[in-house]
Amino acid sequence: MRRFLKNAFYLYYDGFRSMTLGKRLWLIIAIKLFIMFAVLKLFFFKDYLKTNYKTNEQRSEYVLDRLTGKQ
């Protein structure tokens, strides 16, 4: 088991170290994920129901009111 974990670790370790084009691609992925989670999700895409209503009952009530035209 230890040997398997060691081999698995070195597979990733050596793989990342010997990357050529991959380094540039990982940078793009990192920038993209940062924009998505640290900017868009945090400032622009708050979960509407979770932010405005604390419990599932309140959320149900709200959606029912919206669907039946009470809000």
């Binding site: 691609l25 990982w26 793009i28 992925i29 993209k32 994920l33 998505m36 868009l40 999700k41 622009f44 895409f45 708050k46 979960d47 509407y48 129901l49 979770k50 959606v63 919206r66 669907l67």
Partner: peptide
């Protein structure tokens, strides 16, 4: 690499824009 996680944005939109 360029395409990965672009689909997650759709899930953000479900929660924010399409909560009903």
């Amino acid at each position: 690499a360029i395409g990965v996680a672009t689909g997650i944005i759709l899930e953000f939109e479900f929660g924010t824009n399409w909560s009903n």
